[in-house]
Design a protein around this nucleic acid. Sequence first.
DNA 1: TCGCTTTATAGTCAACATGACCATTCACTA
DNA 2: TAGTGAATGGTCATGTTGACTATAAAGCGA
Lengths: 278, 278
Amino acid sequence: MRADDETAGAGGATRATRTTGVAETAGKDGKYGKDGAAGDAYDPRAFPPFAVTVDLAVFTVRDARLQVLLVRRGESPYRGSWALPGGFVRPDESAGAAARRELAEETGLGADTVRPLHLEQLRTYSDPGRDPRMRVVSVAYAALLPDLPEPRGGGDAAHAQWVPRDTAGPLAFDHDTILADAHDRIGAKLEYTCLATRFCPAEFTLGELQQVYETVWGVQLDRPNFRRKVLATPGFVEAVEGPPRPTGGRGKPAALHRAGPASALHPPLLRPEGRPSP
Amino acid sequence: MRADDETAGAGGATRATRTTGVAETAGKDGKYGKDGAAGDAYDPRAFPPFAVTVDLAVFTVRDARLQVLLVRRGESPYRGSWALPGGFVRPDESAGAAARRELAEETGLGADTVRPLHLEQLRTYSDPGRDPRMRVVSVAYAALLPDLPEPRGGGDAAHAQWVPRDTAGPLAFDHDTILADAHDRIGAKLEYTCLATRFCPAEFTLGELQQVYETVWGVQLDRPNFRRKVLATPGFVEAVEGPPRPTGGRGKPAALHRAGPASALHPPLLRPEGRPSP
DNA sequence: TCGCTTTATAGTCAACATGACCATTCACTA
DNA sequence: TAGTGAATGGTCATGTTGACTATAAAGCGA
């Protein structure tokens, strides 16, 4: 969660292309120029068009590590580099729809599996130089997946691969920045939302939920305190009837829970130390 | 802060335009199709281009009310409606730079005044139908202004006007949604960042700072408790030497403070009741 | 069957933060 | 000189958090 935007390169050059004050205000809100008075107005068609893409930071927690889904680039630039999955937004879909479509394609998961997954818009990256070939603005999304039995299906998604987040990079384009922003945002949202359950299967133990927090934050939490806090937060989790899951012989089997109806935590579940940045 | 994205209209139609799986993965990350193999690849130039704009939710606190800067549209559609200020992103600038440029133009403030203002990217609105004339994706920003002595300069900005936030709307396009998202985001960030000082002039009293919280959140806060909390948070504010500002005869003059070096609050300054949504 | 290990769960206690108050100080005005 | 309005300085009960100890339940190996 970086506070500021890419503001480099502002100022001078933009002034140079400015013609009149009327030209500015005529193009308000993404509209054409004043009706008919096209000569002076700011006309978007007079410029090379923007391409709009989505980039996805797809996270899961597996083997007590935060893993991110990456693809290897087959074309230049950055040929052979790892990159975040993504693709073009099509003329008839929103960025959110494009992100969900790409998520299904890259993970190889069916539409039914992908539909309930949490997709969160992070921010938009629009630096003029971020793609050396053309002007591309990219809307970045973060996706949270439980540790699914079918990590990546065959077909289109064969080239996508889970990589531990701390060993990911350097990535193509500005994807290192996007990934860092995504990690920051997810970590921050764990503090005051119930997002952590999205990393878990439908039924999970409190130990698994705690593992999510510990993995995303990179800290150790006290187990009794974590338990107390989660159970004291109304609507965060609710107990599941029936026998606990077989443990495989290690310790007492834990009771199962499922995500509750709440979406926000009151008060928040704060990280042990200070947060990185606003 | 809406949790989910615009996902309406996904699915069917996008499938119809899909050609092959190779076409999908070839256009990864906002690139052209596979080198040379343009026949099958997804080529952005085959589609009508996207226009990219910025929309600004510019807030200030004046007369104990949250005010937002609006412009009146002179062209159709929504001719005569109020709308958020904004405009096209130019080919050589980032969205953030465009937002700052538009902010200067709409407020009539000089570049030096605008430079230190807080601009925060909210999210991107990309619904295919959000502008009836063409495909426009808009990157929304929130800007926080102190109650400046020159509310709006002359010239270009003469048509922009401060409007109380609760009387704003209905606005053109999806600007009601953007404004609501902006208000939610600002309110949430007041809880765990030092953002509130951005609504204040360089030197301010704790009463003025409290007024910001009360106005944005729409609640009343206890003054001694607020004071204790703010002063106990390291780096939030620091005392200013010298005599207090003349009060105009109403009560004891308050000590002046300026924004401290901190950017995040630990622990956060939570709203009295539960937060609206995640 | 008896320990032994492992993990879940229950409970204690002090430090800290918060919300609801009351009291005092200060500058200006009537 | 008293009165008014706002800032500032406290108290106190309550709730939350962090550190820590203790108990319970399951499987394993001897």
